[in-house]
Design a protein around this nucleic acid. Structure first.
Length: 1030
RNA sequence: GGGCGUUUAGCUCAGUUGGUUAGAGCGUACGGAUCACACCCGUAAGGUCGCUGGUUCGAGUCCAGCAACGCCCACCA
């Protein structure tokens, strides 16, 4: 064929056109049909603020390999794309931009305006990362692209929230949360990083009440929190303080009389003075202690991190006040100064410790008492007593926002007599976390690599409740309206209850809220509210009174009229939004339209029943718990089935020093740069080749001195391979005729050795590619494709066949076309662009203009074991060894080039095999075989090579020898052989080995040893000759 | 402190249930403008498999201990 392709592949000139072809062909678009074979994935939605990084690139490559492979296999394949609204990150970015440009804060703009601005920002920049994903070839169904804040997702969020609310799985609590005083929001534990801070451990003397001159000395790194102390604690068994337990101290500066309590959990008698100040409102441990001892919680903070009105008091007749001071800085200074002047500081020591910082604002977080919403993850039992007991004595976890235990008695089970939670398929489970544990433990969800299952189960086993409220404006607003009850109402509600209202009547009403709204006062009285506190459940509303902060709470679902009515009556919507992970947790459901059956109105587009559960979720290990576990929870609870059957956790790419790639380190490689410099296929191939099962992979990063762009020599691997594919294809296309018939592989009878061999190799390649993909072994996949194409096909088959190609042999043309076509198909999932481009050049009938003839839609080549040919493989391996041996001599002795070679095979069988392949060897090694016989004589001063495998052939080339070098080489080999033989001999003469080792091992060792002995004899002979003539 | 993982050639990584000379790519050295490809072709050198001990006829592979490094979780008044 006349084929006009440049000698170098230029990805930039073909990629966008190819991608457009795919889009035009609609092959990415999946529609439910009659096929039972289907494959579906949801993409881990990248943050709307995000730009593509290598993590996205490797995960995108993996998913795309799977999507394209399954599509070729004939599976109805859906890869669902989308973006995450990423509450905190996005709001922070936009707020920052606005402040930089306009010097306005969000409070200047107001909620509505800020949200409007973020939407504008989203419209402008939100699609960038999707475009970038397209540039690496991602074959997502873009027509179905979702955004976690779009109406389809919002509907799912409202449905899930309402369902949980109604079932008592969502509850409210005053909790100690991680407070970001800069962003004025609670942040989750996982959004906090710890940084070492050089601090000071201050020992403060607290005077014992009624015992003048006696002090308890407490040590603290945060002296300012003493203003909120409501106790001091000692260890119950500490002899130093035992006598003081039950007595009181007077809190300096404030003057409050606070108890001395004994607490074995809080106090380590060996640390510091063995006395701990207890500040329940400002320290997680103290909070837990406070709950155990029923201590008052005194909040000292304003939301922006200053001391509130509680920061004042009177001590020894003098007034002290710290109101308005920055808590951890100015207030600390002032407190220390006042204590100093009172001579109450016993000691100051340098003390380095870790301080939690908000990941978003990079400012220190404050433990802060605030109202939050939680999802109940733990087991639900109606045994209130045991719950209370548990809350009081088990290890509490009040730290951070996800904590629960203390609230157990405040949770709101719908139970009314029954324990546990009902999943959507009717299954009863003890609790949500347990359901997700069981799904993995039972193998219903399979995690690869397996070791990650342990982390998943361990994390869920803590069954910590999930704080879902965030004090942000960007996100799904919590659909709860609250009404401030009068003090009297609260009192009646909390203490008395009422018998005048029948629960059943209320439930029967379509909208509880309607009643609630019309007669808000009456809510205070129903007796059945206590202790369960669940009031009414309707189709669009559910609610309960919350005496702790004197409010009625109603959740209204999809009923704007009711919302208006409520607001008219004085109900106010909760200002908070949901944690971003709440909507992410619904991702596999919401993208498919849940609670509806699909996302479009047409009945034949019902995604949910067809594509759910998905086949695979591929993601990074850091969100295995935050995201994966919660998707399992929601999948089971909302829809009654797991969201995916498999979870694949890919490795994390680090720089060459093993550090994570981070913006701040400047060590990241931007995949977009690599696409520009090396092409998308090179990027993908390299990433696939690096996708091993380890948890981290290192990628050495170098900065290009000219452009200043970070890159990695690793990507040359992919680029070089792409170029190889390009050139081999050029060569093959040039070699074959336009009308070359396709190879009929059924009942194929090939005469020629190399033809049989390459088809055998090709079929092995098909087999290994498939098994690698199915086992999620992408590095193996890349390697087996590369070695087949480059080594087997290019280095050997093409070289062997060049003579026949020149001669216009028909069969070889058919084989070439077949190998190229099949290779392009095998390579397509990993390197889609170049393979599609070359596919279009193949002389295949009906190719032109037909969509069906795009490579992306071509069928995956079937593996055919009948084409495996071990005889051909072993003979070709003899050819390879002989060729390499001859080339080795030629390289060692340049004078050997062009000289004839004499072969001395061990026996006639080998002689005959060599004879059959004489032409091949002569052409590959560019040599003439002068003699091939077991009785061939070694010529004078011959360079020698001995094949230890493949039939014990000796290779001689006359008159070229460098005696010293030759002797050195032989001596070295001799020593190696002697060592091997000795070791084999020792083994074989060991009776235990002979009696215990399996027969084939013994036989194999014997065979090996005799080969070595033969080689040794030959070498010794050569060596002797060499030395005799020296 | 708890859990998970890693340690194999100069670099990045493979190495299936223990079994016959531990592999690949890159890099290095040497040779090569031969009519697909120098982003190429050919050849070679390079490894006491982190350390110590154990199990076994036999250990890179299994077990124990140690060391270094990494990640996750918890804690540090």
């Amino acid at each position: 064929m006349n084929i006009d392709l440049p000698p170098q592949y230029s990805p930039q000139s073909v990629e966008s056109a190819i991608y457009k072809k795919w889009l035009d062909s609609k092959t990415f678009h999946a529609v439910p049909d009659a096929r039972a074979d289907k494959y579906s994935m949801v993409i881990p939605p990248p943050n709307v603020t995000g730009a593509l990084h290598l993590g996205h690139a490797i995960n995108g490559t993996i998913q795309d390999i799977l999507a394209r492979y399954h599509r070729m296999k004939g599976d109805n394949t859906l890869w669902m794309p989308g973006i995450d609204h990423a509450g905190i990150a996005t709001q922070a970015v936009v707020e920052k931009t606005i402040f930089e440009k306009e010097h306005k804060t969000r409070h200047d703009l107001g909620r509505e305006e800020l949200v409007k601005r973020i939407w504008q920002w989203k419209e402008q920049f939100g699609a960038r990362i999707l475009t970038q994903l397209q540039s690496i070839g991602a074959s997502c169904d873009w027509d179905r692209t979702r955004f976690t804040l779009d109406e389809t997702c919002a509907k799912a969020v409202r449905e899930a929230f309402f369902k949980m609310f109604k079932n008592g799985l969502i509850f409210r609590g005053k909790r100690l949360v991680n407070w970001d005083t800069h962003l004025q929001t609670a942040v989750a534990d996982d959004e906090i990083y710890h940084e070492p801070v050089k601090g000071q451990l201050t020992s403060i003397k607290y005077p014992v009440d009624g015992s003048p001159g006696e002090f308890l000395v407490v040590a603290t790194t945060r002296p300012e929190t003493m203003l909120g102390d409501t106790a001091v604690a000692v260890h119950p068994d500490d002899p130093r303080y035992k006598h003081l337990i039950g007595q009181h101290v007077i809190l300096p500066l404030i003057g409050r009389r606070i108890p001395i309590i004994a607490d074995g959990q809080l106090v380590d008698p060996k640390f510091g003075t063995g006395v701990v100040k207890v500040t329940p409102a400002h320290d997680p441990n103290d909070y837990a202690t406070g709950l155990r001892h029923n201590l008052e919680q005194i909040n000292l903070l304003t939301p922006d991190g200053k001391v509130n009105d509680n920061g004042q008091g009177e001590f020894l007749g003098k007034k002290y006040a710290y109101i308005g001071l920055k808590f951890a800085t100015a207030a600390r200074k002032a407190v220390l100064a006042d204590l100093e002047s009172l001579n109450l500081i016993a000691d100051k020591k340098k003390h380095d410790h870790e301080v939690g910082h908000s990941d978003r604002s990079k400012t220190p977080i404050e433990p802060y008492l605030s109202d939050q919403w939680f999802v109940r993850m733990g087991d639900i039992t109606n045994d209130n007593q045991s719950r209370n007991r548990q809350g009081a004595t088990s290890e509490p976890r009040p730290s951070g926002s996800d904590s629960s235990s203390a609230n157990t008695s405040r949770s709101l089970p719908d139970g009314r007599g029954s324990d546990g939670v009902t999943l959507a398929d009717g299954t009863r489970v003890p609790g949500l976390a347990q359901a997700a544990i069981d799904a993995v433990a039972s193998g219903r969800v399979k995690i690869t690599p397996e070791r990650y299952a342990k982390g998943y189960i361990d994390w869920l086993s803590q069954k910590r409740d999930w704080c879902i409220s965030r004090q942000l404006w960007w996100g799904h607003r919590i659909p709860v309206w609250t009404y401030q009850m009068s003090d009297a109402t609260v009192k009646v509600l909390a203490e008395k209850g009422h018998a005048g209202i029948d629960e059943k009547d209320l439930i029967a009403q379509e909208a509880f809220a309607g009643w609630l709204l019309l007669k808000p006062d009456q809510v205070a009285v129903p007796s059945w509210l206590s202790p369960q506190r669940i009031t009414i459940q309707g189709k669009h509303a559910a609610g309960f009174p919350w005496p702790e902060d004197g409010r009625l709470m109603i959740c209204i679902k999809d009923n704007p009229a009711l919302e208006k009515e409520a607001e008219a009556l004085g109900f106010v919507q909760d200002p908070d939004v949901l944690d971003t992970w709440f909507s992410s947790a619904l991702w596999p459901l919401s993208t498919m339209g849940w609670p509806d059956r699909g996302t479009s109105a047409t009945a034949n587009d019902e995604l949910l029943p067809y594509f759910y559960p998905t086949s695979l979720l591929s993601t990074a290990r850091e969100i295995l718990t935050l995201w994966v576990a919660r998707m399992v929870v929601f999948g089971l609870y909302c829809h009654g089935d797991v969201p995916f059957k498999d979870v694949y956790i890919h490795a994390v790419i680090q720089d060459g020093e093993g550090r994570p790639m981070k913006k701040s380190l400047g060590n990241g490689v931007d995949p977009v740069d690599i696409v520009a410099s090396h092409g998308a296929d090179a990027l993908r191939f390299t990433l696939a080749a690096m996708a091993t099962e380890t948890q981290d992979i290192r990628m050495p990063v170098v900065k290009d001195s000219k452009t200043g762009i970070n890159t990695s020599p690793k990507f040359d691997l992919g680029r070089n391979f792409a170029n190889k594919i390009w050139n081999a294809s050029r060569f093959i296309l040039g070699a074959i005729a336009e009308n070359t018939p396709q190879l009929e592989t059924r009942n194929l009878k090939l005469e020629t050795l190399e033809d049989r061999w390459i088809l055998s190799r090709l079929n092995s390649a098909i087999q290994s590619a498939e098994s690698a993909i199915n086992a999620y072994r992408f590095a193996d996949l890349a390697e087996s494709l590369r070695s087949f194409f480059w080594t087997d096909l290019c280095d050997w088959y093409l070289e062997i066949s060049k003579a026949r190609i020149k001669a216009g042999d028909q069969t070889v043309q058919q084989i070439l076309l077949h190998c190229l076509k099949t290779s392009l198909q095998l390579l397509h999932p990993v390197m889609p662009f170049i393979t599609e481009e070359l596919w279009s050049k193949l002389p295949i009938e009906n190719r032109k203009s037909k969509i069906e003839n795009l490579l992306i839609t071509s069928p995956w080549p079937p593996f055919d074991s009948a084409q495996l040919d071990s005889a051909a493989e072993s003979q070709l391996s003899l050819i390879q060894s002989l060729t390499s041996a001859i080339r080795e001599i030629q390289n060692r002795y340049p004078a050997a080039k062009g000289k004839p070679v004499i072969l001395q095979p061990r026996n006639a069988a080998t002689q005959s095999l060599i004879e059959q392949s004489r032409a091949i060897i002569e052409s590959l090694a560019q040599v003439t075989i002068q003699e091939n016989s077991p009785t061939a004589e070694k010529p004078v001063n011959a360079a020698t090579a001995v094949l230890s495998d493949g039939g014990g052939v000796q290779v001689f080339i006359a008159d070229v020898i460098d005696k010293t070098a030759e002797a050195a080489k032989l001596t070295k080999r001799k020593a190696e052989l002697e060592k091997l033989i000795l070791s084999a001999h020792n083994k074989l003469s060991n009776e235990s080995f002979a009696s215990k080792a399996p027969a084939h091992i013994i036989q194999g060792l014997k065979d090996q040893m005799s080969k070595h002995q033969e080689e040794l004899i030959a070498i010794e002979k050569n060596l002797a000759e060499l030395q005799a003539k020296t």
